[in-house]
Design a protein around this nucleic acid. Structure first.
Length: 424
RNA sequence: GCGGUUGUGGAGAAGUGGUUAACUCAGCGGUUUGUGGCACCGUCAUUCGCGCGUUCGAAUCGCGUCAGCCGCCCCA
């Protein structure tokens, strides 16, 4: 094997691409229903779109595919996520001046992150995501969550859990962060190696550490909810009430902090509880971001909310729950050519069938009679169209219904006009 | 980035130093040169992820490398 696909990449082969198409169709239908429009942004952006000031996340700092071409000084980065490019486009195209806010967008496509590959974690993977930009309201947060929940339900995924939390506004979060630093400072020596690093980078993440989980100072750690100002508290309460009203099952997880730095207020995650998922069980996650639109030069007060779904992970979850999204469709007709002299005629009949909307194919290998019949079976063709010397000479075809094992020799015109009945 | 584990044909899989790489499925051809899905026969890996080394001799041992998987980290 001289050539090999790069590590952490995947070819979607035909049998699987039917599943992908089915997934994509369902997602698009729901976006249509919820009045979200598609946006397609480039697969790479200027590096500073992703690498923003004060960003401490691993994704931005050590996992990005960043490159600069020869004879160029421009640093570009293959998108590791979809939000930044979408917000950049929202601002650049002045979509904030749209009279109907929020602007509701969806996207899907490949993202790249240089991580160690694992099941459910690829270097090039596909995300489907939505962003609601330009307005801030608990109703918008919940609309986005309901959309996510409904999509997963429609796909048939049941083994899931919805986790929600609030990070409050910038002021609340800053106060909380300070309190955490104060709390953990005396215990710095007792923290695990990762948490010592987190202490400096993002103290909020210490809270969901698995190593230090049971230690006393974890249990006595200050809780976010004690640092929320009234406005943030009220906002989150409304979100929860709306979810209750719509009977969306969820759990409040005050340890849920999310990895990306731009989140404020509502954050949520949908995890699969199916064991086959392995350690990558989060299938969808997102939250509100107050600062991002202004960061890209949009109106100061504008906020947004969005989430992204890992499409490969959804496919794994579907498989784990035994849900089949479908496979290659059967053929209406398979044309069998039984004599070399009739080949051109057979090819014409094939073309005729297709021109009338019948999904059809024929043997191009000049195989034996038996071999062609096997091809009919593999293609799950509803009919076999047999064409040999006799049919050729009389401008006819022999059409055989595979299931009924009935066959007739008729003219091509009759074949076309009765095809619907023949395949029932 | 760290730790562990695996890697034989289109698929599954035996073989753990001795020379034809077992078996099953799929494919192809034939018995049956125009009616299949059964049966029988034949055929299908000069090669064991890749490279180097040890050896008279390696799929089997050693080193390196690539890749998959599992866990950590992180994340969708």
């Amino acid at each position: 094997m001289a050539y090999q696909i790069p590590r952490g990449c995947q070819d979607v082969l035909p049998e699987d691409s039917y599943k992908w198409q089915s997934l994509e169709n369902t997602l698009r239908e729901f976006c249509y229903l919820y009045n979200f429009d598609e946006i397609r942004t480039p697969i790479f952006e200027h590096t500073n779109v992703f690498k923003r000031e004060n960003d401490s996340s691993d994704m931005v700092n050590k996992e990005m595919y960043t490159f600069t071409l020869e004879n160029s000084k421009t640093s570009l980065t293959i998108r590791p996520e979809g939000t930044a490019g979408t917000v950049r486009s929202f601002v650049e195209n002045k979509m904030y001046s749209n009279p109907d806010l929020p602007v509701k967008l969806y996207y899907m496509g490949p993202m790249a992150r240089h991580e160690r590959p694992q099941k459910g974690r690829l270097r090039i993977f596909n995300q489907f995501g939505v962003e609601c930009l330009g307005q801030k309201s608990p109703y918008i947060d919940v609309e986005a969550m309901v959309l996510a929940f409904s999509m997963l339900k429609a796909l048939g995924i049941n083994d899931i859990k919805i986790l929600v939390n609030t990070l409050g506004d910038d002021a609340s979060r800053a106060a909380y962060r300070e309190a955490l630093v104060e709390h953990f400072e005396p215990h710095l020596e007792d923290l695990c190696g990762d948490c010592k690093r987190r202490f400096r980078q993002n103290p909020l993440r210490i809270l969901d550490c698995k190593v230090d989980h049971d230690k006393d100072f974890m249990k006595t750690a200050p809780s976010m909810k004690d640092y929320l100002n009234d406005e943030s508290k009220e906002y989150f309460q409304t979100v929860c009430e709306l979810l209750d009203t719509l009977e969306i099952p969820y759990e409040i997880d005050d340890k849920l902090v999310r990895g990306l730095d731009y989140y404020t207020h509502t954050v949520f995650e949908i995890v699969s509880v199916n064991e086959e998922m392995g350690s990558q069980s989060t299938v969808l996650a997102g939250g509100r971001y107050d600062g991002l639109i202004p960061y890209f030069g949009g109106p100061e007060e504008m906020s947004g909310i969005g989430w992204a779904m890992g499409m490969e992970r959804i496919l794994i979850a579907l498989e784990a729950e035994g849900i089949d999204l479908g496979s290659k469709p059967e053929l209406d007709a398979y044309v069998m050519c039984l004599d070399k002299s009739a080949r051109t005629y057979a090819f014409k009949v094939l073309t005729e069938l297709r021109a009338h909307g019948y999904r059809a194919d024929m043997d191009m290998m000049g195989r034996s009679f038996k071999g062609q019949f096997k091809a009919v079976d593999r293609a799950k063709a509803k009919t076999a169209i047999l064409i040999g010397k006799n049919e050729f000479e009389n401008k006819q075809v022999t059409v055989k219904n595979i299931a009924k094992k009935e066959q007739n020799t008729i003219s091509v015109e009759d074949l076309i006009s009765t095809m619907d009945e023949i395949i029932e």
